[in-house]
Simulated scan of single mutants.
Amino acid sequence: MKLRLLAAGIAALAFSGCTNNTMIPSFSPSAPVETPKAPVVEHTDYEHASPEKQNLFYEDMVAVATSTKSDPNYHRMALDTPERKAWFKNLMYRLWDGQITKQEFIAEGVSKYPDHRYEFEFVANGYEQRR
């Protein structure tokens, strides 16, 4: 009997000795909860980029555009207004600059041109290969 009590006491001390009360977070409703802050990503469009970045982007953009000509499945989009051209160039720039992901690029493109998923995927893959 004494042996069982001694064993139980040692076990209790072993478990309680490992507890660090300072590491237990408080979950009381009055305690403020800190939420992690998302990293701030500076969104810059093509027109406001530095001349060096514009030149690097332009080189990659021309290379990707040239590669579309050799793909029979690629169909040009109706970028028939200055506004549409500027939108598409800025969308490509944001992808190229890492401001948006490949998936975000495709989703935003398909939202305006739903019949051109292949083309947006093609462009996104082209920029991905240039990195």
Rank of each mutant, 00 (worst) to 15 (best):
Val62Trp: 01
Ser111Gln: 09
Gln54Ala: 13
Ile100Cys: 02
Gln99Lys: 04
Gln99Ser: 14
Gly109Val: 01
Phe122Asp: 10
Ser111Met: 06
Asn21Asp: 06
Met23Asp: 06
Ser67His: 03
Gly98Trp: 01
Arg117Cys: 08
Ser111Arg: 07
Asn21Phe: 11
Lys53Asn: 14
Ile106Asn: 03
Leu79Met: 11
Ala8Val: 10
Leu6Asn: 12
Met92Asp: 01
Val123Trp: 01
Glu42Val: 06
Phe15Arg: 05
Pro32Tyr: 07
Lys112Arg: 13
Lys89His: 03
Glu59Val: 12
Ser50Lys: 11
Pro39Glu: 15
His75Pro: 01
Leu91Ser: 06
Cys18Lys: 07
Ser70Trp: 02
Ala11Met: 14
Thr68Val: 07
Cys18Ala: 13
Lys89Asn: 10
Phe122Tyr: 15
Thr68Ser: 15
Gln99Cys: 05
Ala38Cys: 06
His116Val: 09
Ser67Ala: 15
Asn20Ser: 10
Lys112Met: 09
Met77Ala: 08
His116Trp: 00
Pro114Lys: 11
Ser30Pro: 00
Glu121Leu: 04
Thr81Lys: 03
Asn21Met: 14
Ile106Glu: 06
Asp45His: 01
Lys85Pro: 00
Phe57Ile: 06
Pro114Trp: 00
Phe120Glu: 10
Asn55Trp: 00
Ala86Ser: 07
Glu47His: 04
Asn20Glu: 09
His43Gln: 15
Ala78Arg: 15
Lys53Gly: 12
Leu91Gln: 07
Asn73His: 06
Glu47Gly: 09
Lys112Trp: 00
Tyr46Val: 03
Thr81Pro: 02
Glu42Lys: 05
Ile106Leu: 07
Ile106Ser: 06
Asn73Trp: 01
Glu47Ile: 09
Leu91Ile: 09
Asn20Pro: 02
Val40Pro: 03
Glu83Pro: 05
Phe57Lys: 03
Tyr93Phe: 14
Cys18Gly: 11
Phe88Ser: 03
Met61Trp: 14
Tyr58Met: 14
Leu91Phe: 08
Pro36Leu: 15
Gly98Ile: 00
Leu79Asn: 02
Phe57Met: 12
Leu13Lys: 05
Glu47Val: 07
Lys85Trp: 07
Lys69Met: 15
Ser70Arg: 07
His43Cys: 03
Ala14Gln: 05
Met77Ser: 00
Phe120Ile: 13
Tyr74Gln: 02
Lys37Tyr: 00
Thr19Gln: 07
Trp96Arg: 04
Ala8Tyr: 00
Val33Leu: 12
Lys102Phe: 02
Lys69Ser: 14
Thr19Leu: 11
Ser67Met: 04
Ile24Gly: 01
Asp45Leu: 00
Phe88Tyr: 09
Met23Phe: 10
Thr19Asp: 02
Leu95Glu: 05
His116Cys: 08
Glu47Tyr: 00
Pro25Tyr: 12
Glu119Asp: 11
Glu119Ile: 08
Glu52Gln: 13
Val40Lys: 09
Thr68Lys: 05
Asn90Tyr: 08
Glu34His: 13
Glu119Met: 12
Lys85Met: 11
Leu95Ile: 03
Tyr58Ala: 15
Phe27Tyr: 08
Gln99Asp: 08
Glu47Thr: 13
Tyr118Thr: 14
Met61Thr: 02
Ala8Thr: 11
Tyr93Leu: 01
Leu95Ser: 05
Ala65Val: 03
Thr66His: 08
Ser26Cys: 09
Glu119Trp: 01
Pro36Met: 15
